[in-house]
Design a protein around this nucleic acid. Structure first.
Lengths: 332, 332
DNA sequence: CCCGCTTGGTCATACGTATTACTAATCCGA
DNA sequence: TCGGATTAGTAATACGTATGACCAAGCGGG
């Protein structure tokens, strides 16, 4: 017995049959096994340090009680909490979570989704295109923060409302000239932000909007914000698609001798750690990342259970900190 | 055939036996199956959208080709890259990675390690105590950034050298009064930093060291740094255990009207995203997180292969940016 | 012409578990 | 006392794969 002990080893140790071991350890022994025998089995299992073979159990049951969480990048501070929320709910139902980072980790076969390494029961895809789940035909899936009108059930985030709240806040302070430092990422959530932003600015009397795109990193954001500030009609408020982009906007402002928020207001999105680490602390929209993961997992588990989860949207919340103020005099 | 197709379905479709399908798709058919038959099998598999059942394969082979990555918290920006490096190397060898966040996600049985959800072949434990792998007796494990003298093979980070480099840099600038804003976390890496720091300061002529502990979050770090700055002999340089802690130190300084780096030098550790998002950009020690994950995975794979991986230590690198300068006049 | 060898493929089995069908023993009411 | 019901447990089997043992042709050399 060099390898790990099996249920048969436990059976021999306890002087019963393998079936009995399985019944006892499976918890379905009520009325089939005497308490004394059950105790004996448990003791034997403990003595041998037995733990059931997952592969065998999965094969037998035809279910892995594992779901795949697909995220664009684990490095982003947004997805840690998403994972945590999802994993917590999953654990409560005896499910495990496997993370799949995409597109940074293409599968071995070239197609990124050719081979998720684990056998999975369902998919939770965060901030991804619907095609992302196309690699798993027939596997139940729930999308997070994606197009709610897509063919796959989803849990949404109130990003449009968040954008509207930002503009309302800035407009109330007196701003009319807005700059959108936009993430050049082809995800629904960013398209949605852009659309809501444009519409909201359109509703502001005398509102004007300029836009510059960038990657989601500080240097790229700094350059994009700089382009807006150096333009012919520089905005008095920079609306950023992401907290990290806001950090770039801060840098662009400082490089031009502009004080935030006295000379320039800046807003973020997400409310990740960075928002309060920056100086001044960032006015941003808090997205409930952990709740998103939890709600998505709950929906997926309901789906796996044969149910039909109701569409949900989790609202964002405008957090006003110190990076926004009235525009400087003489700019309106 | 309501469920997913099996190798037997493919066999029927191709007019061969199940064994043949397995041989062909397993890639070991050279000299056993004619090219024509192999092509037919492949075509049939493609037509049916066949993908082998992982659970069955795992059971049969007795190996899952999956390793468990244990990290304290996925929310920390340090562990995303660690995961990525590990996953990349693993994928190249046909292995998958499952993440287990600890201690935030205790297992169902109360004991955090009672039940990792997947069957695993090995463990990569990052910045954790050796006890962390005790829950998996007999499972090959490699520790990352942990005590190299422990009973488990490990890949180290040159954190002690990093601390020495920081002190050397600050001492060269003229600092003698150092404050250590220390992470109150019982991990080897932080003990190691503290020891190296104390020794290095002891070697500075006239060197003095005060210390304040905090949790790894901005608010707690701000408070701790404040305690040092308000003490009887305020340091001229704050050495922080972590970039995030440095952000707190910045805030404490600003709250007291101190300019970084004119009135106070601040250093970080890790060189995560935050380091360049802050103003001024942070002098810190870059830890090669992605390389760490990659090297750890390589060592683990070697271990799984029956080899005996040589101990390695990846050096940190001092990155001098704008948060350090000579101490203000009159302070020495 | 027969035997050994190669080629191309199939049969049977085992991995470890969960569960259904079955049996042996005990019990209780009439 | 007897027979149905209950209790306590076992035997057998299937999940889907990979692989070692086996086997049927074909073929060429002696």
């Amino acid at each position: 017995m060099t390898g790990r002990p099996t249920s048969r080893d436990v059976a021999r140790e306890a002087g019963v049959s393998q079936s009995t071991v399985s019944l006892v350890l499976g918890g379905k022994w009520t009325g089939r096994v005497s308490p004394a025998t059950a105790a004996g089995v448990r003791a034997a299992a403990a003595r041998l340090g037995y733990r059931p073979n997952r592969a065998a159990r999965n094969l037998r049951l035809g279910t892995t009680r594992t779901v795949l969480l697909m995220v664009p990048s684990l490095t982003s501070p947004f997805f840690g909490p998403v994972y945590r929320g999802a994993a917590r709910v999953a654990a409560r139902h005896g499910f495990g979570v496997v993370v799949y980072e995409w597109p940074d980790l293409p599968g071995p076969a070239g197609s990124p989704f050719a081979a998720p390494h684990e056998a999975i029961d369902g998919i939770l895809a965060s901030s991804m295109a619907v095609e992302a789940v196309g690699g798993f035909p027939g596997t139940p899936a729930v999308m997070l923060d994606s197009d709610p009108d897509g063919p796959v059930p989803s849990v949404g985030l109130g990003v449009a409302d968040g954008m509207r709240a930002i503009i309302a806040h800035l407009a109330a302070l007196g701003h009319t000239r807005f700059g959108h430092v936009a993430a050049d990422v082809d995800q629904w959530t960013f398209h949605s932000r852009a659309d809501a932003l444009a519409a909201a600015v359109g509703a502001v009397p005398g509102g004007a909007l300029v836009r510059a795109g960038c990657a989601i990193d500080v240097a790229s954001a700094k350059a994009a914000a700089g382009r807006l500030l150096d333009g012919p009609h520089p905005p008095t408020a920079l609306v950023c698609d992401d907290d990290q982009i806001s950090a770039g906007a801060y840098k662009a402002a400082r490089a031009r001798g502009l004080d935030v928020p006295r000379d320039l207001s800046v807003t973020g999105f997400d409310d990740v750690l960075l928002a309060t680490a920056l100086e001044p602390e960032l006015t941003t929209v808090r997205l409930p990342a952990e709740d998103l993961g939890a709600a998505g997992m709950a929906a997926l588990l309901e789906l796996l259970d044969g149910g039909c989860p109701a569409p949900r949207t989790l609202p964002g919340e405008l957090i006003v900190r110190s990076s926004t103020a009235a525009p400087p005099r003489g700019t309106r």
